[in-house]
Design a protein around this nucleic acid. Structure first.
Length: 637
DNA sequence: GAACAACATCTCCAATCAAT
DNA sequence: ATTGATTGGAGATGTTGTTC
């Protein structure tokens, strides 16, 4: 209405609200007009259009006195969402003082706070009686501050005794008001975590597991474990190969529980460890008919996931540990979202919610939990992760391969940080191959390989034939690693297939995997690139890599590629790096879906999709491992 | 118990101020 | 001049006590 219609108001259906408000007010005016004689001066017109107010405003909107859409939009409201604020709706106060003046509660609150800040005799008219009358509103604040400090301290200390008896704790932000109070009365230690009362701890009935869910878990085999011999082998393999990379479980604690038959380790953690162990062990007991360990890993993954989904485990530390290990599964075709990044992200979120990312020095967590928190800070801190991250960050600012050679010379691409990091990644891979330890590497390594290969292809495209020998060698090493990993990780096989196709189409079709390089420069690429791909990449193969949207022109290219049976085939995901392989069982299928429920889903037709294009940022890494996108990315056309 | 009045509590409009 | 934050206060809504 006026220019002060502030951006803080943005409910999605405010126009509707506006109309309703307008109609309501019109009715009101009409009724008044019918019942009363016309008044010479109607109400100010601005009030006519006042919208109906929301049921409740959140704390922040209330304090800022701005419109809140928590009721229609949900928590967080639009304002809090925009400002990254904690959004919560305070409980409604009861009418406490019906004898008070019409000045209202706000005035009383001001008085109350004034008294808190300036204790002592007051000349206020409401002196005395008001404080006693205010039973549950502002007076609690006054009482809190005016009561005996020793009593309050003893309350806090009693709470602390409670902590030691039961493990339910809440994480407090270091600078939160409650943490400051805890600090004041307890000292420096203990300001980070505080206990939940029995009541609070027992109120999670919604997540309590019931017999029905237990039956489901039983049917899924989630409560079963292999023989102790097999378990022992997998546990040994886990602590030998996986634990050094993801040091999140105290081995002595775990082994003590493992040998204590009366008090076995938590089941969720057991299944997760068996999953991780099955990826890095070589036992013949879990091999399937084809000599693969993947089915066994799938079984442990599904069991652990079922336990997690059913809220079987209540200990958050155990949950975080198990979720981190669930990332050791990265296989199942069709499962696009729940990959290593999903599970690790979930674990990090829960860990942060519990304050594990903070210094544990001020915590009253047990020493073991503190150690865990400390360990969790650096599960993937290794050289590979550093270079992978560096590679990823700097690659985004590299010009397109198709850019002019002048631009490349000007920017001195060869000295680019992404190039400098791709080399060490490959060296690490080479060492792992030499030590025959590649198969024990975490799945993250596949992502490292992907990034390394991207840069190596870049090098091959840019460098002169004399210098691309080294790049070719590095490429061969990465491809060799992918080939070795293909036996363990299906996704490695998919990535390898993709880069083989890219290499062929780019004109670097002949190479060996022994690192001795025999690249044959075919020269300028000519002919139909797509034709090269028919035999090398399954047309119905798509692998998710990034959440970026596909520009329309890329999509158009999809449609022009006549051989592509899956020309409409693309996916969007909210996941950061969704990467699981998607194998379309039938080439004509529009999109992957569970064949058990073929008619269960409706997908938006590609031509109805809305694209969000970021101008000037056309050379983003492709969303999928779809060869067409990647050819475009590398400028192979 | 229903209807009503009184008033406590609340939302949020819009004027004002401060920063850019 | 524009934009965003702050805040006085109008008016809507909820709660409680009273009357019938």
């Amino acid at each position: 209405m006026s220019s002060s219609t502030s951006p803080q108001f943005a409910p999605e259906n405010h126009q509707l609200e506006f109309k309703i408000g307008y109609l309501r007010n019109c009715d009101k005016i009409e009724n008044e007009a019918e019942n009363l004689t016309p008044k010479p001066s109607p109400a100010p017109c601005r009030r006519i259009f006042r919208r109906p107010r929301a049921g409740r405003a959140c704390e922040m909107c209330h304090s800022r006195r701005v419109r809140c859409d928590a009721g229609s939009h949900g928590i967080p409201c639009t304002n809090c969402e925009a400002l990254f604020l904690d959004c919560s709706i305070p409980p409604r106060k009861k009418n406490s003082n019906r004898e008070g003046s019409s000045a209202g509660g706000r005035r009383k609150l001001a008085i109350s706070i004034h008294r808190v800040r300036q204790p002592g005799p007051s000349n206020d008219k409401e002196d005395g009686g008001d404080i006693d009358e205010g039973k549950d509103d502002d007076s609690w604040l006054s009482q809190l501050f005016t009561s005996n400090h020793d009593d309050f301290a003893s309350l806090i200390l009693q709470a602390d005794q409670h902590i030691k008896q039961q493990p339910d704790m809440a994480y407090l932000q270091k600078k939160s008001s409650l943490a400051l109070l805890m600090k004041d009365y307890y000292g420096s230690a203990g300001a980070v975590h505080c206990p939940l009362s029995d009541d609070a701890a027992n109120q999670h009935m919604a997540t309590k597991i019931n017999t029905e869910e237990m039956d489901i878990l039983k049917k899924r085999g989630a409560l079963q474990l292999p023989s102790r011999d097999v378990c022992e082998e997998l546990i040994d393999a886990y602590f030998k190969w996986a634990a050094p990379v993801v040091s999140i479980i105290n081995k002595s604690w775990f082994m003590q529980r493992w040998h204590d038959l009366e008090n076995q380790p938590p089941l969720l953690l057991m299944q997760a460890i068996l999953l991780a162990g099955s990826r890095v062990c070589t036992t013949s007991m879990l091999l399937d008919a084809n000599g693969s360990l993947i089915p066994a890993a799938t079984m442990f993954y599904k069991r652990a996931k079922a336990l997690y989904d059913a809220d079987y485990e209540e200990d958050r530390v155990i949950i975080v540990q198990a979720l981190t290990l669930l990332g050791w599964y990265w296989e199942e075709p069709g499962v696009v979202i729940k990959n290593v990044f999903y599970w690790n992200g979930l674990a990090i979120t829960i860990a942060q919610g519990f304050g594990m990312h903070r210094s544990p020095s001020g915590s009253r967590l047990s020493e073991a939990d503190k150690r865990f928190g400390k360990g969790y800070g650096g599960p993937y801190i290794s050289e590979t992760v550093y270079h992978t991250t560096r590679c990823l960050l700097h690659r985004a600012y590299m010009p397109s391969v198709k850019s002019s050679s002048e631009l490349h010379e000007k920017l001195d691409i060869s000295q680019h940080a992404a190039f400098q990091s791709a080399s060490p990644i490959t060296t690490i891979i080479e060492n792992l191959i030499a030590r025959n330890e590649l198969r024990y590497a975490p799945p993250f390594l596949i992502y490292s390989l992907l990034l390394g290969l991207i840069i190596h292809v870049y090098e091959l495209q840019l460098d002169s034939p004399s210098t691309n020998t080294a790049a070719g060698k590095r490429f061969s090493i990465c491809m060799s690693a992918l080939e070795k990993l293909s036996d363990v990780w299906l996704v490695a096989k998919m990535v390898r297939g993709l880069f083989e196709a890219i290499l062929q189409a780019a004109g670097f079709g002949s190479y060996t995997l022994d690192g001795t390089k025999r690249f044959k420069q075919i020269g300028e690429h000519k002919g139909e690139v797509w034709g090269l791909l028919v035999n090398s990449v399954t047309p119905s193969t798509t692998i998710m890599v990034f959440p970026m949207q596909i520009p329309p022109e890329t999509h158009a290219k999809h449609q022009s590629a006549s051989f592509m049976h899956h020309e409409d085939d693309f996916f969007l995901t909210d996941d950061l790096w969704a990467t699981a392989a998607v194998l379309n069982p039938i080439p004509e299928t529009v999109q992957y879906q569970d064949p058990t429920f073929p008619d269960n889903m409706n997908y938006i037709a590609p031509d109805q999709m809305i694209y969000w294009i970021q101008p000037g940022f056309q050379h983003t890494i492709p969303t999928t491992l779809d060869v067409a996108d990647w050819f475009d990315y590398f400028g192979i056309r």
